[in-house]
Nucleic acid binder design. Sequence first.
DNA 1: GCATCACGCAACCATTGGTTGCATTTATCG
DNA 2: CGATAAATGCAACCAATGGTTGCGTGATGC
Lengths: 116, 116
Amino acid sequence: MSAALAEKVDDDLWSAIGDPTRRRMLDLLLVEGEGTATTLSRHLPVTRQAVTKHLGVLDRVGLVRATPAGREKRYQVDETQLARAVAQLASVGSAWDARLQRIKRIAEAIQRTKQD
Amino acid sequence: MSAALAEKVDDDLWSAIGDPTRRRMLDLLLVEGEGTATTLSRHLPVTRQAVTKHLGVLDRVGLVRATPAGREKRYQVDETQLARAVAQLASVGSAWDARLQRIKRIAEAIQRTKQD
DNA sequence: GCATCACGCAACCATTGGTTGCATTTATCG
DNA sequence: CGATAAATGCAACCAATGGTTGCGTGATGC
């Protein structure tokens, strides 16, 4: 039955998007198309160096790619990888959802039994 | 349009479900109905004390509730709160999804332009 | 009554998200 | 060309967190 939901979650990918700052960074990169550590840090409550570290982990899991351009290093989102991440969110979400549904049904069944 | 997607994400809730161990704990609690720190730790690659700490953060954000029973302390999932968490996953996921779609459309438009 | 089981507390360790400070490379402007 | 400004990179340091081990204590069961 619901075994097909066990679409194995990649912990590295997940924990990459688990950090709120990194999520906002991905948001920014998506709406602005691209960005550097310095430009991103201007829109965030953390320093450039913190952003740099985050870009490092996002890069390591493949969520962003960098292209050096003169004195700066422009990052942009790897869309297919982000799509994978979104799929995992959906996967875990719907797995829990399914179990919650089942619990609800069982609870209702017990209610009915009690009323016999 | 897609502005309604900005359903403000609760960072505490999110980071609670961001940890892989805690996710597995929620899974276990869902399938088994309830559990204690010791029973959960038997199914996990970490010690009872680690599980205890995790139960602490899950409790603090309201994802689980404890009921003392003699010498043990049984935990179970708070379904409505988990439902909220699932909603947030869906929210972030679909927001990114929407932006990815838009990017794709723009890219296609550019392709068409080039071919004129 | 005593061994046992579950819990709580404390110290400790490694990783991580964050900071500040400084050195280095690349643009830019007189 | 030379100096200043703007970007990155590197290192030390700090606090929080996910983990461990060790020990004390309160309920259970024979």
